[in-house]
Design a protein around this nucleic acid. Structure first.
Lengths: 162, 162
DNA sequence: CGAAACCATTTGACAGGTCAAATGGTTTGT
DNA sequence: ACAAACCATTTGACCTGTCAAATGGTTTCG
Protein backbone atom coordinates (compact mmCIF):
# COMPACT_ATOMS: atom_id res chain seq x y z
CA UNK A 1 0.00 0.00 0.00
CA UNK A 2 2.98 2.23 -0.38
CA UNK A 3 2.06 3.11 -3.89
CA UNK A 4 -1.26 4.32 -2.60
CA UNK A 5 0.40 6.82 -0.45
CA UNK A 6 2.72 8.02 -3.15
CA UNK A 7 -0.18 8.49 -5.46
CA UNK A 8 -1.92 10.65 -2.96
CA UNK A 9 1.17 12.71 -2.46
CA UNK A 10 1.52 13.63 -6.07
CA UNK A 11 -2.01 14.78 -6.51
CA UNK A 12 -2.18 17.04 -3.50
CA UNK A 13 -0.37 20.10 -2.45
CA UNK A 14 2.53 17.97 -1.40
CA UNK A 15 5.82 19.69 -1.99
CA UNK A 16 7.81 17.64 -4.45
CA UNK A 17 10.65 17.39 -1.96
CA UNK A 18 8.51 15.61 0.64
CA UNK A 19 9.86 12.27 1.84
CA UNK A 20 7.36 9.44 1.92
CA UNK A 21 8.25 8.68 5.49
CA UNK A 22 6.13 10.38 8.08
CA UNK A 23 4.01 12.14 5.52
CA UNK A 24 0.69 11.38 7.15
CA UNK A 25 1.93 12.23 10.60
CA UNK A 26 3.60 15.33 9.28
CA UNK A 27 0.39 16.56 7.70
CA UNK A 28 -1.62 15.77 10.78
CA UNK A 29 0.82 17.53 13.06
CA UNK A 30 0.74 20.65 10.93
CA UNK A 31 -3.03 20.59 10.75
CA UNK A 32 -3.27 20.18 14.50
CA UNK A 33 -1.01 23.13 15.01
CA UNK A 34 -3.30 25.35 12.95
CA UNK A 35 -6.46 24.05 14.55
CA UNK A 36 -5.12 24.61 18.03
CA UNK A 37 -4.14 28.16 17.26
CA UNK A 38 -7.51 28.91 15.73
CA UNK A 39 -9.51 27.28 18.50
CA UNK A 40 -7.49 28.88 21.27
CA UNK A 41 -7.83 32.33 19.69
CA UNK A 42 -11.58 31.97 19.29
CA UNK A 43 -12.09 30.77 22.83
CA UNK A 44 -9.89 33.45 24.28
CA UNK A 45 -11.61 36.23 22.39
CA UNK A 46 -15.17 35.21 23.25
CA UNK A 47 -14.75 33.74 26.72
CA UNK A 48 -11.64 33.54 28.82
CA UNK A 49 -11.34 29.79 28.41
CA UNK A 50 -8.35 27.82 27.23
CA UNK A 51 -8.63 24.93 24.83
CA UNK A 52 -8.05 22.44 27.60
CA UNK A 53 -10.69 24.04 29.77
CA UNK A 54 -13.17 23.92 26.90
CA UNK A 55 -12.47 20.26 26.30
CA UNK A 56 -12.86 19.40 29.96
CA UNK A 57 -16.12 21.30 30.20
CA UNK A 58 -17.50 19.55 27.14
CA UNK A 59 -16.38 16.20 28.43
CA UNK A 60 -18.14 16.81 31.72
CA UNK A 61 -21.29 17.81 29.89
CA UNK A 62 -21.17 14.43 28.20
CA UNK A 63 -20.12 12.31 31.14
CA UNK A 64 -21.80 13.68 34.22
CA UNK A 65 -19.90 13.34 37.46
CA UNK A 66 -16.91 11.90 35.69
CA UNK A 67 -13.79 11.22 37.69
CA UNK A 68 -10.30 12.27 36.69
CA UNK A 69 -9.53 8.82 35.35
CA UNK A 70 -12.69 8.68 33.29
CA UNK A 71 -11.90 12.02 31.73
CA UNK A 72 -8.31 11.03 31.08
CA UNK A 73 -9.43 7.90 29.27
CA UNK A 74 -11.99 9.77 27.24
CA UNK A 75 -9.83 12.62 26.04
CA UNK A 76 -6.56 10.73 26.05
CA UNK A 77 -4.94 13.25 28.33
CA UNK A 78 -2.22 12.83 30.93
CA UNK A 79 -3.50 12.34 34.46
CA UNK A 80 -0.89 14.60 35.94
CA UNK A 81 -1.83 17.45 33.70
CA UNK A 82 -5.48 16.78 34.35
CA UNK A 83 -5.01 16.79 38.10
CA UNK A 84 -3.39 20.21 38.01
CA UNK A 85 -5.86 21.63 35.54
CA UNK A 86 -8.82 20.45 37.59
CA UNK A 87 -7.35 22.05 40.67
CA UNK A 88 -6.96 25.33 38.82
CA UNK A 89 -10.49 25.15 37.44
CA UNK A 90 -11.92 24.53 40.88
CA UNK A 91 -10.11 27.63 42.09
CA UNK A 92 -11.44 29.57 39.12
CA UNK A 93 -14.97 28.53 40.05
CA UNK A 94 -15.59 26.35 37.00
CA UNK A 95 -15.71 22.95 38.67
CA UNK A 96 -16.80 21.42 41.93
CA UNK A 97 -15.46 18.17 43.32
CA UNK A 98 -17.24 15.65 45.47
CA UNK A 99 -15.56 12.69 47.06
CA UNK A 100 -17.16 9.33 46.43
CA UNK A 101 -18.69 8.02 49.65
CA UNK A 102 -17.84 4.40 49.00
CA UNK A 103 -14.34 4.95 47.67
CA UNK A 104 -12.61 8.00 48.99
CA UNK A 105 -9.90 7.87 46.36
CA UNK A 106 -12.35 8.99 43.72
CA UNK A 107 -13.41 12.57 43.15
CA UNK A 108 -16.47 13.19 41.03
CA UNK A 109 -16.45 16.44 39.11
CA UNK A 110 -19.36 18.67 38.25
CA UNK A 111 -19.64 21.91 36.35
CA UNK A 112 -20.59 25.07 38.21
CA UNK A 113 -23.32 27.36 36.91
CA UNK A 114 -20.56 29.66 35.72
CA UNK A 115 -19.03 26.92 33.60
CA UNK A 116 -22.43 26.00 32.17
CA UNK A 117 -23.03 29.63 31.33
CA UNK A 118 -19.70 30.07 29.58
CA UNK A 119 -20.25 26.86 27.69
CA UNK A 120 -23.69 27.95 26.52
CA UNK A 121 -22.40 31.36 25.43
CA UNK A 122 -19.48 29.86 23.59
CA UNK A 123 -21.26 26.98 21.92
CA UNK A 124 -22.72 28.88 18.96
CA UNK A 125 -19.28 30.13 18.03
CA UNK A 126 -17.74 26.70 18.32
CA UNK A 127 -20.52 25.16 16.27
CA UNK A 128 -20.09 27.84 13.64
CA UNK A 129 -16.40 27.14 13.58
CA UNK A 130 -16.97 23.46 12.97
CA UNK A 131 -19.40 24.34 10.19
CA UNK A 132 -16.78 26.57 8.68
CA UNK A 133 -14.04 23.98 8.92
CA UNK A 134 -16.16 21.41 7.14
CA UNK A 135 -17.95 23.77 4.80
CA UNK A 136 -16.44 22.29 1.66
CA UNK A 137 -16.43 18.67 2.76
CA UNK A 138 -19.19 16.42 1.48
CA UNK A 139 -21.01 14.02 3.76
CA UNK A 140 -19.47 11.04 1.99
CA UNK A 141 -15.97 12.41 2.23
CA UNK A 142 -16.43 13.18 5.89
CA UNK A 143 -17.56 9.63 6.44
CA UNK A 144 -14.39 8.35 4.80
CA UNK A 145 -12.32 10.85 6.75
CA UNK A 146 -13.59 9.59 10.09
CA UNK A 147 -13.09 5.99 9.07
CA UNK A 148 -9.46 6.66 8.16
CA UNK A 149 -8.93 8.43 11.47
CA UNK A 150 -10.32 5.36 13.20
CA UNK A 151 -7.90 3.10 11.40
CA UNK A 152 -4.87 5.26 12.00
CA UNK A 153 -5.80 5.73 15.62
CA UNK A 154 -6.16 1.99 16.11
CA UNK A 155 -2.77 1.40 14.46
CA UNK A 156 -1.18 4.12 16.56
CA UNK A 157 -1.83 2.12 19.72
CA UNK A 158 0.66 -0.56 18.81
CA UNK A 159 4.22 -0.37 20.01
CA UNK A 160 7.33 -2.12 18.87
CA UNK A 161 5.98 -4.21 16.04
CA UNK A 162 6.46 -1.66 13.28
CA UNK B 1 -12.27 -4.89 18.87
CA UNK B 2 -14.52 -2.04 19.78
CA UNK B 3 -16.03 -3.66 22.80
CA UNK B 4 -12.65 -4.41 24.25
CA UNK B 5 -11.34 -0.92 24.13
CA UNK B 6 -13.62 1.85 25.25
CA UNK B 7 -12.31 5.38 25.57
CA UNK B 8 -9.76 5.13 22.86
CA UNK B 9 -11.44 3.25 20.11
CA UNK B 10 -15.00 4.24 19.37
CA UNK B 11 -15.96 4.05 15.78
CA UNK B 12 -16.66 7.14 13.78
CA UNK B 13 -20.37 7.05 14.46
CA UNK B 14 -20.73 9.65 17.10
CA UNK B 15 -21.26 8.37 20.61
CA UNK B 16 -24.71 9.40 21.75
CA UNK B 17 -23.31 11.73 24.35
CA UNK B 18 -21.00 13.53 21.97
CA UNK B 19 -21.86 17.12 21.18
CA UNK B 20 -21.71 17.98 17.50
CA UNK B 21 -19.54 20.96 18.29
CA UNK B 22 -15.85 20.38 18.12
CA UNK B 23 -16.23 16.76 17.11
CA UNK B 24 -13.73 16.88 14.27
CA UNK B 25 -11.22 18.82 16.28
CA UNK B 26 -11.78 16.55 19.23
CA UNK B 27 -11.07 13.45 17.18
CA UNK B 28 -8.03 15.00 15.57
CA UNK B 29 -6.62 16.09 18.90
CA UNK B 30 -7.01 12.63 20.34
CA UNK B 31 -5.46 11.03 17.29
CA UNK B 32 -2.55 13.43 17.43
CA UNK B 33 -1.99 12.54 21.04
CA UNK B 34 -1.66 8.85 20.19
CA UNK B 35 0.51 9.46 17.17
CA UNK B 36 2.89 11.65 19.12
CA UNK B 37 3.29 9.07 21.84
CA UNK B 38 3.93 6.32 19.34
CA UNK B 39 6.36 8.32 17.25
CA UNK B 40 8.28 9.62 20.23
CA UNK B 41 8.60 6.14 21.71
CA UNK B 42 9.84 4.67 18.45
CA UNK B 43 12.38 7.43 17.91
CA UNK B 44 13.61 7.25 21.45
CA UNK B 45 14.04 3.49 21.38
CA UNK B 46 15.94 3.33 18.10
CA UNK B 47 17.89 6.56 18.11
CA UNK B 48 18.08 9.19 20.81
CA UNK B 49 16.09 11.70 18.80
CA UNK B 50 12.97 13.55 19.86
CA UNK B 51 10.02 14.05 17.59
CA UNK B 52 10.90 17.69 17.07
CA UNK B 53 14.48 16.81 16.20
CA UNK B 54 13.28 14.22 13.72
CA UNK B 55 10.98 16.70 12.06
CA UNK B 56 13.69 19.33 11.83
CA UNK B 57 16.15 16.86 10.36
CA UNK B 58 13.63 15.70 7.75
CA UNK B 59 12.75 19.26 6.90
CA UNK B 60 16.39 20.09 6.36
CA UNK B 61 16.80 17.06 4.15
CA UNK B 62 14.02 18.45 2.00
CA UNK B 63 14.98 22.09 2.06
CA UNK B 64 18.73 22.30 1.96
CA UNK B 65 20.29 25.23 3.76
CA UNK B 66 16.93 26.37 5.07
CA UNK B 67 16.82 29.29 7.46
CA UNK B 68 14.89 29.32 10.71
CA UNK B 69 12.04 31.25 9.12
CA UNK B 70 11.78 28.85 6.19
CA UNK B 71 11.58 25.91 8.56
CA UNK B 72 9.05 27.64 10.75
CA UNK B 73 6.83 28.30 7.76
CA UNK B 74 7.16 24.77 6.49
CA UNK B 75 6.44 22.91 9.70
CA UNK B 76 4.19 25.54 11.24
CA UNK B 77 6.31 25.83 14.34
CA UNK B 78 6.95 28.77 16.64
CA UNK B 79 10.11 30.69 15.84
CA UNK B 80 11.06 31.08 19.45
CA UNK B 81 10.87 27.38 20.06
CA UNK B 82 12.74 26.74 16.86
CA UNK B 83 15.51 29.14 17.79
CA UNK B 84 16.13 27.35 21.07
CA UNK B 85 15.84 23.90 19.55
CA UNK B 86 18.31 24.74 16.81
CA UNK B 87 20.75 26.05 19.36
CA UNK B 88 20.47 22.80 21.31
CA UNK B 89 20.90 20.71 18.17
CA UNK B 90 24.01 22.63 17.19
CA UNK B 91 25.43 21.90 20.61
CA UNK B 92 24.48 18.24 20.23
CA UNK B 93 26.38 18.13 16.95
CA UNK B 94 23.35 17.58 14.73
CA UNK B 95 23.31 20.91 12.90
CA UNK B 96 25.75 23.47 11.63
CA UNK B 97 24.90 27.11 10.98
CA UNK B 98 26.34 29.43 8.41
CA UNK B 99 25.61 33.11 8.24
CA UNK B 100 24.43 34.45 4.91
CA UNK B 101 27.11 36.66 3.39
CA UNK B 102 24.71 39.16 1.87
CA UNK B 103 22.31 39.36 4.80
CA UNK B 104 23.87 38.71 8.14
CA UNK B 105 20.51 38.30 9.85
CA UNK B 106 20.00 34.98 8.16
CA UNK B 107 21.51 31.73 9.32
CA UNK B 108 21.48 28.81 6.93
CA UNK B 109 21.29 25.42 8.56
CA UNK B 110 22.86 22.19 7.41
CA UNK B 111 22.83 18.68 8.81
CA UNK B 112 26.04 17.20 10.18
CA UNK B 113 27.22 13.75 9.12
CA UNK B 114 25.98 12.52 12.48
CA UNK B 115 22.48 13.78 11.79
CA UNK B 116 22.50 12.22 8.32
CA UNK B 117 23.63 8.95 9.81
CA UNK B 118 20.92 8.92 12.47
CA UNK B 119 18.35 9.83 9.86
CA UNK B 120 19.43 6.99 7.59
CA UNK B 121 19.40 4.50 10.42
CA UNK B 122 16.00 5.59 11.59
CA UNK B 123 14.30 5.93 8.23
CA UNK B 124 13.41 2.27 7.69
CA UNK B 125 11.61 2.18 11.02
CA UNK B 126 9.73 5.37 10.31
CA UNK B 127 8.76 4.15 6.87
CA UNK B 128 7.58 0.87 8.35
CA UNK B 129 5.56 2.77 10.87
CA UNK B 130 3.82 4.76 8.18
CA UNK B 131 3.11 1.52 6.32
CA UNK B 132 1.62 0.12 9.46
CA UNK B 133 -0.51 3.16 10.17
CA UNK B 134 -2.00 3.07 6.70
CA UNK B 135 -2.08 -0.69 6.28
CA UNK B 136 -5.86 -0.92 6.18
CA UNK B 137 -6.53 2.25 4.25
CA UNK B 138 -7.34 1.95 0.57
CA UNK B 139 -5.82 4.16 -2.09
CA UNK B 140 -9.11 5.92 -2.72
CA UNK B 141 -9.81 6.53 0.94
CA UNK B 142 -6.36 7.91 1.52
CA UNK B 143 -6.89 10.24 -1.40
CA UNK B 144 -10.09 11.51 0.18
CA UNK B 145 -8.41 11.74 3.56
CA UNK B 146 -5.69 14.05 2.29
CA UNK B 147 -8.18 16.19 0.44
CA UNK B 148 -10.23 16.67 3.60
CA UNK B 149 -7.11 17.57 5.55
CA UNK B 150 -6.33 20.14 2.87
CA UNK B 151 -9.75 21.69 3.21
CA UNK B 152 -9.80 21.77 6.98
CA UNK B 153 -6.30 23.16 7.07
CA UNK B 154 -7.24 25.93 4.67
CA UNK B 155 -10.30 26.77 6.74
CA UNK B 156 -8.27 26.74 9.93
CA UNK B 157 -6.25 29.71 8.74
CA UNK B 158 -9.14 32.11 8.98
CA UNK B 159 -9.73 34.13 12.12
CA UNK B 160 -12.78 35.93 13.36
CA UNK B 161 -15.15 35.17 10.52
CA UNK B 162 -17.11 32.28 11.88
C1' DC C 1 -6.12 -9.66 60.95
C1' DG C 2 -2.37 -7.76 58.07
C1' DA C 3 0.85 -7.69 54.25
C1' DA C 4 0.92 -7.49 49.34
C1' DA C 5 -1.10 -6.00 45.32
C1' DC C 6 -3.98 -2.53 43.37
C1' DC C 7 -5.95 1.73 42.19
C1' DA C 8 -7.00 7.02 41.93
C1' DT C 9 -4.91 11.02 42.35
C1' DT C 10 -0.94 14.16 43.21
C1' DT C 11 3.64 15.91 42.76
C1' DG C 12 8.26 16.73 40.69
C1' DA C 13 11.09 17.42 36.90
C1' DC C 14 11.57 18.54 32.44
C1' DA C 15 10.49 18.98 27.21
C1' DG C 16 7.39 21.22 24.00
C1' DG C 17 4.46 25.15 22.62
C1' DT C 18 2.87 30.14 22.46
C1' DC C 19 2.96 35.09 22.84
C1' DA C 20 5.14 39.38 23.15
C1' DA C 21 8.99 42.22 23.58
C1' DA C 22 13.95 42.85 22.59
C1' DT C 23 18.08 42.75 19.61
C1' DG C 24 20.57 43.56 15.71
C1' DG C 25 20.79 43.83 10.67
C1' DT C 26 18.65 45.74 6.16
C1' DT C 27 15.82 48.46 3.12
C1' DT C 28 13.13 52.55 1.92
C1' DG C 29 12.01 57.17 1.29
C1' DT C 30 13.20 61.70 1.61
C1' DA D 1 22.84 60.24 4.54
C1' DC D 2 19.75 58.81 7.92
C1' DA D 3 15.51 58.06 10.36
C1' DA D 4 11.57 55.12 9.93
C1' DA D 5 9.92 50.87 8.69
C1' DC D 6 11.08 46.17 8.13
C1' DC D 7 12.82 41.68 8.86
C1' DA D 8 15.33 37.45 11.04
C1' DT D 9 16.41 35.77 15.10
C1' DT D 10 16.63 35.70 20.20
C1' DT D 11 14.95 36.03 24.82
C1' DG D 12 11.61 36.07 28.70
C1' DA D 13 7.54 34.55 30.79
C1' DC D 14 4.26 31.38 31.11
C1' DC D 15 1.19 27.48 29.83
C1' DT D 16 0.68 22.63 28.13
C1' DG D 17 2.26 17.74 27.66
C1' DT D 18 4.77 13.64 29.37
C1' DC D 19 6.97 10.44 32.42
C1' DA D 20 8.00 8.55 36.70
C1' DA D 21 7.79 8.38 41.47
C1' DA D 22 5.06 9.42 45.64
C1' DT D 23 0.83 9.45 48.46
C1' DG D 24 -3.07 7.66 50.37
C1' DG D 25 -7.13 4.67 50.01
C1' DT D 26 -9.01 -0.19 48.85
C1' DT D 27 -9.11 -5.05 47.86
C1' DT D 28 -7.26 -9.70 48.02
C1' DC D 29 -5.94 -13.55 50.28
C1' DG D 30 -2.87 -16.23 53.31
Amino acid sequence: MVSANLGAMNTHNTPSFQTPSSFVTFRLARLQSSLNAQGAALLKSKSGLSLVEWRLIQTLRMIKNASLTEIADHVQMDKGQLSRKIKAMVEKGLLRTETNKRDQRIQHLTLTAEAEKLSAEMMPFMDARQQHLLANVSVEDLEVFYSVIDKIEAASKFRGDA
